[in-house]
Structures are given as C-alpha cells and as structure tokens.
C-alpha cells in the first residue's frame, strides 16, 4: 500500500514537472544562455547548467510547499552560476559576451527576470549599493557596445574591452534602418566568436567562426 502511494506520487510529480518544463523551459534556457554568454545556436553549457538546476527543483518538488517552482529554479540557476562563474569567464560570442560573469548574472536577474534589487542582493550576498553599481556599469557597457542607429562599423568605445578591437566580421550582418535590434545582436555575436577562437587557433579560423556566428544570429 505504501508502495502504491509512492508510485502514484512519483507519477504525479513527473507529470507536473514535465508540464512545468514545457511551459517555462524556453525562458529559463534563454536566461541560462545569457548567463553563460553563448550564442543562440550553441547552448551546450547553458543546457548543462539548466539541467542541474531543474534536477534540484525536481528533487525538491514535493517539499516546495506552495513556492513557485520557477522562482526556485531561477534561484538555483543563479546560485549554480555564481558557484561555477569562473568557468564562464571566456567570452563565447553571446549577447552578453563582453561582460564579466558577475555583471551578466546581475543584469539577467535585474533586467531580464525583473527581480527586485533587494532580492538580487540577498540572493548574491552583496550589498544593495553594489548590485546597483554593477547593474549601472553593465548597462553602460552594453549600450556602448551596441552600435548606434544604422552605423554598425564604428563603435564609440572600442578601447573599453580589448576583445572589441579585432573583429573581422563587424560589418557582416546587414542592418538597414528598422532592423537595428537584430543587427546589434548579430554584430555582438560576430565580434565575440571571432575574438574567442582567434586567440586559440589563428586568424583564418577566427574569421570563419565569426562570420558563421554572425550569419546564424542575424535572421
């Protein structure tokens, strides 16, 4: 009888969990991808991070006691990323590739997920002023990294990060007028991937990877 009840509970938990992942998985994976700084096409590390966080949520499912599983997963994801942050220091060509892991974490929690400043500070164990300062700095870096309307080639702050200087595929994605946002994402992915692989392998392969990432992110 105990066995039967346990089997019923396992089945219900599995069904609820599957429905939860089907609903919230896409958004969580996007958040994880922003954290790891990977381009949209290659999300291996983000998937690993999200799987670990989701597994913890599954293990806790029966004892959530009314807590939102999305909140729990997001908190676990942030904690796991903060714990393993040093692994994601190398830029990989995502939207936030030019930020440090801590700046990415604060930016994703504050702006993408809309978590309050106090809660972000409590989750990361930082003072509120520090969170505000990191967020402001990250916003400044992101805005300076994004091209102004129409002009993709010239970047106003090429000297802030050394990776922004050598970009073989800065002008690859065609951004004409109304498609400024997608053009910006494409340029960001192109520069990040080009610089990252260029340091390891050489100029020829760097240029190839850069154009590939840029073309993938542009549509």
């Amino acid at each position: 009888m105990v066995r039967k009840r346990r089997a019923a509970r396992d089945g219900r938990r599995a069904r609820e969990f599957e429905a939860f992942v089907a609903g919230a998985g896409g958004r969580l994976l996007h958040a994880a991808t922003l954290l790891t700084g990977e381009p949209t096409g290659d999300t291996e590390a983000a998937e690993r991070l999200l799987t670990a966080a989701l597994a913890r949520t599954y293990a806790r499912w029966d004892r959530l006691r009314g807590e939102d599983p999305y909140d729990h997963t997001r908190r676990t994801l942030a904690a796991l990323f903060a714990h393993r942050g040093h692994r994601y220091r190398r830029p990989r060509g995502g939207t936030l590739a030019r930020l440090t892991p801590q700046e990415r974490l604060v930016l994703v929690l504050r702006l993408y997920e809309g978590v309050a400043e106090e809660q972000t500070a409590a989750a990361l164990g930082l003072p509120v002023e520090r969170v505000r300062a990191i967020c402001t700095r990250a916003v400044t870096v992101m805005r300076s990294a994004a091209p102004r309307r129409g002009t993709t080639g010239t970047r106003p702050s090429a000297g802030t990060r050394p990776s922004a200087g050598t970009s073989p595929s800065a002008g690859t994605p065609p951004s004409t007028g109304g498609r400024a946002a997608t053009g910006a994402a494409g340029a960001g992915a192109g520069t990040g991937a080009g610089a990252g692989t260029g340091t390891g392998a050489g100029t020829g392969t760097g240029a190839g990877a850069g154009t590939g990432a840029g073309a993938g992110a542009a549509p």
Binding site: G26, L29, T33, A55, Y112, M142, A185, A217
Partner: peptide
Amino acid sequence: MLEGPHPALPPDLAGRAA
C-alpha cells in the same frame, strides 16, 4: 537587447533533468 532570439529547448532536457 536581452530579448533576442530564443534558443530552441531540446526535447529531452526535461527527461534528463527528471
């Protein structure tokens, strides 16, 4: 800027996590 293109969720991710 953060609301860029969403990556596709692998179909077996939920199963692996579970």
